[in-house]
Design a protein around this nucleic acid. Structure first.
Lengths: 129, 129
DNA sequence: GTAGTAACTAATTAAATTTTTAGTAATGGC
DNA sequence: GCCATTACTAAAAATTTAATTAGTTACTAC
């Protein structure tokens, strides 16, 4: 995740242009990052530790998971708590804004289920439950 | 846009995993593509031809704009009409689903405006109107 | 002191997306 | 015929994002 963006590129200029035009573009850039919504939903369901989220989301890597927690915290969607027990543990919980976003995303989820083009994948789900 | 996805990569597997888990992930993958929301909003406002959208969205390229129209059509969010006049013209209009999505995106837009982390950019807007 | 766990980070590599450049078909004007 | 226009497409280069590999710190168990 270390690689910095090239602020002199047209690629960067265009993204900035869109974010300045409408903050929606900034939020979409965030929530469309791979795994991030599922991490958010895990936390909503109480799966709120590094390890448990990692187990829940089969293929996610440590690097990405750490990055997603960091982003969600940065945008004040989740808050992090470090418990100084022995052994210590870290827990993530949704903030009010995070909960609000979950609700909005669930609405979009319902909408996407109603889209014929997204149904191709949904059909597969019925076989496994 | 020609380059095909590598279906044997873990990158591909992970995206598929997410899309099968929830169709939200497929829709987010679509709406987070650069320019696509703005193209959708242009059409909503009646800026509905290739050239007029291109003029409205300063930096967008032909390649991307054509791709975005194609994607929006594929997902039945917009419909394309070719008028056999002389000179011919092509117009895009929102479908019912497209209008529904716009409404949802506008809700998210309001939410993102209320997020402190997205406010940094919003402040800039006040200087220019 | 060696192995193991939780929660991470840094550097590298692989893959995807976006931008750039150049070109197409159909039509009209000169 | 040559240039201009609209609505595109194809191929390549640039940039960004995600995945992989290898490590860290602080602690417990043996």
């Amino acid at each position: 995740m270390a690689t910095e963006r090239k602020v002199t590129s047209t690629n960067y200029r265009n993204q900035s242009f869109l974010e300045e035009k409408c903050s929606l573009n900034e939020l979409l850039d965030l929530v469309s990052k791979r795994w991030i919504c599922e991490v958010l939903f895990c936390i909503e369901e109480g799966i709120n530790r590094f390890k448990s989220v990692k187990e829940e989301l089969s293929y996610i890597s440590d690097t990405i998971l750490a990055d997603r927690f960091r982003l969600l915290e940065k945008y004040d969607l989740v808050s992090k708590e470090h418990f100084d027990e022995i052994p210590f543990r870290v827990e993530y919980t949704l903030t009010e804004k995070g909960q609000e976003l979950c609700t909005l995303l669930e609405q979009i989820c319902n909408f996407s289920d109603s889209l014929p083009a997204c149904k191709i994948e949904s059909k597969k789900k019925t076989t496994s439950g």
